[in-house]
């Protein structure tokens, strides 16, 4: 059991496998757009996504820099995602629309569910597997380890885990893939990886 790949990103940097890959200049209006350009990926749906889904998608592109995700069958990977503030930014948009702009927008409302981001990843990766979104007080490695244990007990080949936060204070993403090796989980290795 090992952590195959991880990707961390925020408004200032892109880090893959604990190595700084790109420093974000911050010259553009949205750092996520700058990072999208950095990857030179053509995926028009990106522009329609809310901040949570954009970050998760950019995280996946980071993972794909070093890992071939097509080795997995379309139901072999469980997605385990969480954050503290749910879809706060999209909630704000929708709320402002009807309280201040006398407007209701279907595309803004749809993103007021945090699990839309796992839906976006499922569409991009063509993965039909199990996934779930949780609200937690903070990033809690033990929680992910429990969920991974559950997924492995069902024979899943890997887990794609993520913590993705977009609030007024900050935007942060940690995403990592853990591969199932004989249903054993080496907690120490995971702890030390995230130290």
């Amino acid at each position: 059991m090992s952590i195959v790949t991880s990707c961390k990103l925020n408004a200032s940097s892109l880090i893959i496998n604990n190595q700084l890959i790109h420093t974000i200049s911050g010259d553009t209006i949205d750092w996520k757009r700058e990072l999208y350009n950095f990857y030179s990926k053509d995926y028009p749906k990106f522009h329609k996504m809310d901040p949570l889904a954009k970050m998760a998608f950019l995280g996946i592109l980071g993972i794909e820099k070093t890992t071939d995700l097509s080795v997995y069958d379309d139901n072999e990977v469980s997605m385990i995602f969480a954050n503290k503030t749910s879809s706060y930014k999209s909630d704000s948009n929708h709320f402002e629309n009807y309280t201040k702009k006398n407007l209701i927008s279907p595309s803004d409302f749809v993103y007021t569910l945090p699990n839309i981001l796992t839906g976006e990843l499922a569409i991009y990766l063509k993965w039909y597997g199990e996934n779930c979104f949780y609200i937690l007080e903070k990033f809690d490695l033990d929680f992910y380890i429990e969920q991974i244990e559950i997924a492995f007990s069902k024979g899943k080949k890997a887990c794609l885990c993520g913590w993705v936060e977009s609030s007024d204070k900050s935007e942060d993403l940690i995403i990592f893939i853990i591969e199932n090796q004989n249903n054993k989980i080496n907690k120490e290795e995971i702890y030390s990886y995230f130290k």
Partner: peptide, 20 residues
Amino acid sequence: SSNDANHISGPSRTGEGLVR
């Protein structure tokens, strides 16, 4: 559970995720 891997709000026309 299973995801449709098809659309973020529209149900799959084939019911793929539910079938799975």
